[in-house]
Write a protein that binds this DNA or RNA. Sequence first.
DNA 1: GCCGGCGCATGATAGGCGTCATGTCCTCGG
DNA 2: CCGAGGACATGACGCCTATCATGCGCCGGC
Lengths: 247, 247
Amino acid sequence: MGYKRPIPTRLECPFEPQYHCRECDCKKRCFFNFLSGDPLKRFKTERRMRLYKPHQIIFSEGDQPQGMHLLCVGDVKLVKADTHGRELTISYLSCGDLVGDSPYWAGTPYCTSAETMRESVVCFLHRGLVESLEKSDPEFWRRSLRRISASLCQAMDRVVGMAFKSAEARLASFLLSLKFPPVPDASLSCHLRPAYSRREIADNLGLSPETVIRGLAAFQRRGLVRVSGKSIDVRDRSGLEKAAAER
Amino acid sequence: MGYKRPIPTRLECPFEPQYHCRECDCKKRCFFNFLSGDPLKRFKTERRMRLYKPHQIIFSEGDQPQGMHLLCVGDVKLVKADTHGRELTISYLSCGDLVGDSPYWAGTPYCTSAETMRESVVCFLHRGLVESLEKSDPEFWRRSLRRISASLCQAMDRVVGMAFKSAEARLASFLLSLKFPPVPDASLSCHLRPAYSRREIADNLGLSPETVIRGLAAFQRRGLVRVSGKSIDVRDRSGLEKAAAER
DNA sequence: GCCGGCGCATGATAGGCGTCATGTCCTCGG
DNA sequence: CCGAGGACATGACGCCTATCATGCGCCGGC
């Protein structure tokens, strides 16, 4: 963790099959790599690329979706505000991920906000483009269903975790997930991850930053991790897994 | 709450448009009411109706989906087991709802178990039938996406609730949701609900039964509800809403 | 270089909720 | 009719975690 990463110098989009992400050096498949022929051409001409600064809002909870977003370069988090000021990070997205697709399909306002965690390139597909892609290939439906269904299953896991797991167990799960990122479709995942502040971890787990700090300190005392600043190394993976399985 | 309801005397399935559910006397639309012609004929001949006893398992967490289930009559809950014995109720389903569709689409094992809460009629659609229905009409994809996306949004709400809301606030939300059932698509909802024991409420909220009991007692002292046995009447709706909004 | 701000760290305190124990009531079966 | 079991109810107790307070170290701006 704690990488220095270059700011993207040009707007690019991983739409080819077996797209090789130069930035994180992982070979991944873009959600839209099934496109070819006319739909691909239309996709290329009508999508709108946009560069976002760090901590910039792509859309806000409550907005009405006007189309779909595809994250091309960067990191984005989905956050949900509580009525009392606190906010919870729902998920982290990396390049190749769709952003905010489920409210689009549901036909409801966004139930989360999307915020860049660093400079990011996002490509916007307006409603007309999405609808034409739908018609061109049922693979679009299939992938969307698979993706969102997997997210739903993950969300259920999280509900159970919040209900029954202690702060330390949840923290352990979080640390383990950093290596195998908790993105909807693992085959689309990116292995590099941004460095998380204590507060960001706390916002993800629904804990106070102090509790996160104490948990990390306890793990370090037990030799499970090695902490220095924002860099957290997992030393004893199976030990952490045991901690994550505890109540 | 606390209704006596007749045991279904014959296997029936609400597949017609504007199906009128005789049992709960609400007009609702079945998920498959878009079918007509050959697909409808195939649906009628190939679906397999089955009667389940109360507290019978339809499928278990970890099983591989072989098709899709449609709940025709009765009440079903989706539950997820913790590794330490406790279990959490993820959602309640009523007639007209699909059961366990998202793991089918995700191509993963069931992430919840499905259990009848009373005598219920469930119709099973084997994989071949589902695949033929997919091909016949994109409306199938669209509805599935809408349904599952809406469930995902709800699940996110629940995660936030578990993270930030107190036991009383969550209990208040639960009581309010009994009148407007928390099913994925409100237009498909059934207004009658089974009566919930203290333990069932606790399993839904991730609380201990004692905490639920104390919460109900506190609400009754404040005049928000009137409790007698399994019957819980909401007396002061706006008061409960205020309690639900508290931290 | 100095200072202010922010993230990190640690202790003290208080409140919420799970757990255990006890007791009552209701229901069901014999 | 009676006894057993289960759901409901209430109190005592203890742990977990949020909150508040304090202090340290780092970094950027003047």
